[in-house]
Design a protein around this nucleic acid. Structure first.
Length: 464
RNA sequence: GCUCCCAUCGUCUAGAGGCCCAGGACACAGCCCUCUCAAGGCUGGUACGAGGGUUCGAAUCCCUCUGGGAGCGCCA
């Protein structure tokens, strides 16, 4: 029993993943999981630029972090591997031989300089810069002459002239390109390596991929890849092209957008659920309101609910989902935020106390300083609150003898303080700020000596 | 230069001619609750890029403009 749908994510391990890549991966995974189909992860490290293991490991780590898994891919075999493109060269070669034999490909002897000159002159004449096809008409003698010159040939795919190349895009609807507008494209470089356009398509066909979901920067590649696959005697997959993501200034989200790289998001403390919930809504309206666990997202995803306009990444919304994710996650998932910044053994308790009042790792660090370290200088508002409480207030706290919440509140009430007039100076004296978690658990965390020090400090400040 | 795609609150979006003086979510403001903040509850403000058509009627259809995105590689 074979599954009807197979989708894939095919990143090249150059640079680190940004939100746009991650969204493509998530969506491809969601369609597969929703349909009960296969999801394949294929690493597109070309054989010429063999990628380093660290980048591949990082890629896998980022995807796993989000909650994605794959039926075929690194560490998981479904019989359609290998899953590194650099290990599929033999299959590419076989395909090139087949195309050559069928007259669908021809050697091209043009050098990069010649092609560049051709492009420039086309541009000057205000014409689209595409390959003229001059090597397509070479006869045996012409080829021999060029080889005698020592030229090394690349291989180009011969597009059928005067045709309308059409397909039904699952997101964008009916699409159509004129073959004459595209130009014959390189499928194998002069150095013998397979070019993206061909290897990507050949692998999809060979791995039984039935749905290619990718960014809309690939739409113009689609007609070429479809004819190539058909020339190989296979059936092209269906295609779905997502509008790209744009960043803060309507600018495209690029790999340079460091703040939006999965890496830096993770380092700042964003949780996978937060990122996934944001991505689920960027350009997609199929999900019900509210937070969804990644595992439950496939039911919330619908290809037909994808928009056609570029979507804008908004940090405020990411923060909202971060808040939601924070309320739901295990305390244990957050201990890394405070490790080494609390007294030994208090990591979990600290996290449990803080989690509703912090958003990111930096907030946790700031709070660890307040609970166990030293306080910053008070601002004008803080000074006036302390002064209003007066030294007698803090004398009473110091005299209480105990440092638990009930004892201290009782002692403070003895001075006649109540309500805001009680809790504001108490909180301020202890934590240096007017906002934060409930005082009872905060007091339970702080060392008694530190509590006394803080009261003494507040008392001194209150007399100024 | 040429080709293609897109255009609703600050942001993500609902809306496929009358149900829309435009709905939801986030953010924002006010109130309630509360030891603070958050959470929760209630209330509120904010949008159909511009101009022309078509129609009894347009956010929805057509054209132009403007704005944004993508592509035109021996990059992926």
């Amino acid at each position: 029993m074979t599954s009807p749908l197979a989708s894939r994510f095919a990143p090249s391990p150059t640079g680190s993943l940004h939100l746009g890549n991650l969204r493509t991966a998530l969506y491809a995974w969601l369609v597969a999981r929703r349909a009960g189909g296969r999801f394949v992860l294929r690493i597109e490290d070309t054989d010429r630029m063999r990628s380093d293991e660290a980048k591949i490991a990082e890629l896998i780590e980022d995807l796993t972090w989000l909650g994605l898994d794959w039926d075929g891919g690194p560490g998981q075999d479904d019989g359609t591997g290998p899953y590194r493109q650099s290990e599929r060269a033999a299959s590419h070669e076989a395909a090139f031989g087949k195309l050559l034999a069928g007259g669908h490909a021809y050697p091209c002897y043009c050098t990069e300089e010649e092609l560049e000159a051709e492009r420039q002159s086309a541009l000057r004449q205000k014409r689209p810069p595409r390959y003229s096809g001059r090597c397509a008409v070479l006869d045996a003698a012409g080829r021999a002459a060029r080889e005698a010159e020592g030229r090394r040939a690349s291989l180009r795919f011969r597009l059928p002239p005067g045709q309308r190349l059409a397909w039904d895009d699952l997101v964008r609807g009916p699409q159509s390109f004129r073959s004459d507008d595209l130009g014959d494209f390189v499928i194998r470089r002069a150095d013998g390596s397979a070019a993206f356009l061909s290897s990507n398509a050949i692998d999809d066909a060979a791995m039984g991929i039935t749905l290619v979901l990718r960014g809309e920067d690939h739409v113009a590649n689609t007609p070429r890849q479809r004819v190539l696959i058909e020339a190989l005697g296979a059936t092209p997959p269906q295609y779905a092209h997502l509008p790209l993501l744009v960043g803060p200034q309507h600018a495209p989200l690029s790999k340079r957008d460091g703040a939006m790289s999965v890496r830096s998001l993770r380092e700042r403390g964003y949780l996978p659920g937060a990122v996934a919930n944001l991505l689920l809504r960027l350009g997609h309206s199929g999900a019900e309101d509210g937070y969804h666990e990644v595992a439950a997202m496939p039911a919330q995803f619908d290809l037909k609910a994808l928009g056609h306009a570029p979507a804008h990444v908004d940090e405020l919304q990411l923060n909202h989902w971060q808040h939601e994710a924070l309320l739901r996650c295990e305390d244990a998932a957050l201990v890394d935020w405070v490790r080494g910044k609390t007294p030994a053994g208090l990591e979990l308790a600290t996290v449990a106390t803080l989690r509703k009042n912090i958003l990111l790792k930096a907030d946790a660090e700031r709070w660890c300083g307040r609970l166990y370290g030293s306080l910053e200088d008070p601002d004008a508002e803080a000074r006036s609150v302390l002064a209003a409480a007066g030294p007698a207030f803090f004398d009473a706290l110091l005299a209480a003898g105990a440092c638990d919440y009930d004892a201290l509140v009782t002692a403070a009430k003895g001075t006649g303080a109540k309500g805001k007039g009680l809790f504001q100076p108490l909180r301020l004296a202890l934590t240096g700020t007017l906002e934060g978690p409930e005082l009872r658990p905060v007091l339970a965390l702080m060392p008694p000596e530190l509590i006394r020090t803080r009261f003494e400090r507040a008392r001194a400040l209150s007399t100024v």
